[in-house]
Simulated scan of single mutants.
Amino acid sequence: MSRVGKRPISIPNTVQVTVEGSKIVFKSGKITKELETYRRVHIELNANELAFKSVDNEPQSRAYWGTYRALASNIVVGMTTGFNKVLEINGVGYKAAVAGKNLELALGFSHPVKYPIPEGVEIVVDKNTITIKGSDKQQIGQIAAEIREFRPPEPYKGKGIKYSDEIIIRKAGKTAKK
């Protein structure tokens, strides 16, 4: 039995939810998001709660049960509070700046790296931290991973781009023979 799937999702007043067959439509202001379940779960919409039930007792059905509940919950949280990821830049001469619709990164290459900022995502740079904000959890995580990929942290000096809560295990360098 899915521990995640059992819990109903409480819907705040700012979000309107409608069920159209196997599709769930979420509306909040101008933002509209849809979640297609392909009839893999039963959807129950009460006054201000959204609940999911498994179609049968097969392992794959139970996996869909928890997955679709988590996806729906992420949409509701994204529409109300949003998601953010914080990256830190470590290294001499490494810096970032937002220029128009691009994030410009100076990471020790011969040229600055320009990363285009997608619609619906806000990137804020403050000294050596990059904060990525948006309503789609998957998109925010993907953007953070792509930015980190330009210069991942190295284990000797810790230079590079890392998540703020990431711990870099440092290695000892070579020592001279005595």
Rank of each mutant, 00 (worst) to 15 (best):
I161Q: 04
P116I: 10
A70V: 04
F26C: 00
I9K: 02
I75Y: 08
K30Q: 15
I9S: 00
L71F: 02
N84T: 10
L107C: 05
I123Q: 07
K85L: 12
K174H: 15
T175Q: 15
K177F: 09
I75Q: 01
Q16H: 14
R151P: 00
G173N: 12
R151K: 10
E34R: 11
A97D: 15
I117N: 11
V125N: 12
I31R: 08
G120L: 07
T32R: 09
S54A: 02
E88H: 15
I130L: 14
N102T: 11
I167P: 02
K101Q: 13
T81G: 01
V121D: 12
N48K: 07
I140D: 04
I169V: 13
V125I: 07
G108R: 05
K53D: 04
Y156G: 05
Q138S: 13
K177S: 08
A51I: 05
P8G: 14
V113S: 03
L105V: 08
A176T: 12
K23R: 15
I75M: 00
A70M: 03
W65H: 07
P153E: 02
S164A: 10
E36G: 08
K133L: 10
A51F: 06
N13C: 13
P118Y: 04
G93Q: 02
Y64S: 01
D56L: 01
K6H: 06
A47C: 12
V92C: 11
P118I: 01
V25C: 11
V86D: 02
I130T: 10
S164R: 12
R39G: 14
E58A: 06
I75H: 05
G160M: 06
Y156D: 03
A145W: 05
H111R: 09
Y38A: 15
Y163W: 11
E88D: 15
I130P: 12
G158S: 11
M1V: 06
T67Q: 09
P152C: 03
L45H: 09
K162N: 08
S54Y: 01
N46S: 15
T18R: 13
Y156T: 05
P12A: 08
N74Y: 02
I161K: 11
E20P: 13
N48C: 03
L45A: 00
N128T: 08
G160C: 08
G160I: 14
G108H: 02
L87T: 07
V113F: 05
I140W: 06
P118F: 03
I75N: 03
G21Q: 12
P116F: 13
I123F: 07
N128S: 15
G5C: 01
R40G: 08
Q142L: 15
Y64L: 00
V125Q: 07
K171P: 04
I147P: 01
A70S: 11
G100P: 02
